[in-house]
């Protein structure tokens, strides 16, 4: 495909990345993942429940060929995030990590200081770091300087479904850094995903909007279409906004004139 994109050594065609949390059940998740057309799926690293026997079943429900992107969700310090990233790498045997260092329980907004600190350590250890960050251009630049392979500003708080709350900051981030900008979190419905892509995002990462939709599989299809539509509109170049009308039909040659 001509319109691919890449992070580090990894090349992708789909511009929709999806999570694996909050689905009503694994079969629904699997059908939604397939319907989304995503090539990258996020997973979390958690203590194994030693009271249960048998293998963890999540991986068996993720379609073969999908790239796993371990996250460091719910880590509140750089140290916790670094340890979790290392465990994720040991599980996945890959170099990608979605780095989260959370600063506040209510909003789940990132602790950008801890995020930059953890990024520096993990980049040195050979990780391909994708940090989940605030919609702050200054932080985005610091993350780029730290050697991150991409930057993933939020559209709105995780799981909020509020959509793209600060499109201007996202645009400034896209102007500021040379690494790919992915919009991560906040998408509520298909038009939000399209807006992110129309702004020029390289890709969008979402979980709740699909997993908690009434029909997750149908929403996954909608998101896939929205991402593609938004990307095409971005490439096509939208018309400037005008305050007054500009007629589409000729104003001359009217009958009775």
């Amino acid at each position: 495909m001509a319109d691919g994109w890449s992070i580090g050594e990894h090349r992708f065609t789909s511009r929709l990345l999806v999570g694996t949390g909050k689905y009503p059940d694994f079969p629904t998740m699997q059908r939604a993942l397939v319907a989304s057309g995503a090539e990258v799926v996020t997973v979390a690293v958690r203590r194994l429940d030693l009271s249960k026997t048998g293998p963890a079943s999540l991986l068996e429900w993720i379609p073969k060929g999908m790239k796993l992107l371990p996250n460091t969700a719910a880590c509140f310090t750089a140290d916790e995030a670094i340890r979790t990233a290392r465990l994720g790498r040991e599980l996945e045997m890959g170099d990608l990590v979605k780095l989260e260092v959370i600063g506040d329980r209510r909003t789940l907004f990132p602790d950008v200081e801890g995020l930059v600190e953890a990024s520096k350590v993990l980049v040195k250890e050979g990780f391909t770091v994708l940090p989940y960050t605030n919609d702050d251009p200054v932080t985005a630049k610091k993350l780029e300087d730290a050697g991150c392979a991409a930057v993933m500003p939020l559209g709105a708080p995780i799981g909020s479904g509020l959509g793209i709350r600060n499109p201007y900051n996202l645009r400034i981030i896209m102007e500021t850094v040379k690494i790919p900008v992915l919009v991560d979190a906040g998408v509520g419905t298909a038009s939000d995903a399209a807006v992110a892509m129309e702004l020029g995002a390289v890709a969008v990462l979402m979980n709740t909007a699909i997993a908690e939709a009434k029909d997750p599989v149908l929403m996954a299809e909608a998101m896939k279409a929205a991402i593609e539509a938004g990307r095409k509109a971005y490439l096509a170049g939208r018309i400037p906004m005008k305050l007054h009308a500009a007629a589409s039909s000729p104003m001359s040659g009217l009958i009775g004139s």
């Binding site: 999570g19 997973v43 958690r46 203590r47 963890a56 040991e90």
Partner: peptide, 28 residues
């Protein structure tokens, strides 16, 4: 510190060690 799979046979656990055993779960 992560113990990589190639060191599972060699790495001895001592009294009082703090051990974490983790796996992937669904997440965003």
């Amino acid at each position: 510190s992560v113990v990589t799979k190639d060191r599972y046979e060699a790495h001895r656990i001592g009294p009082g060690d703090s051990i974490e055993i983790v796996a992937f779960v669904g997440g965003g």
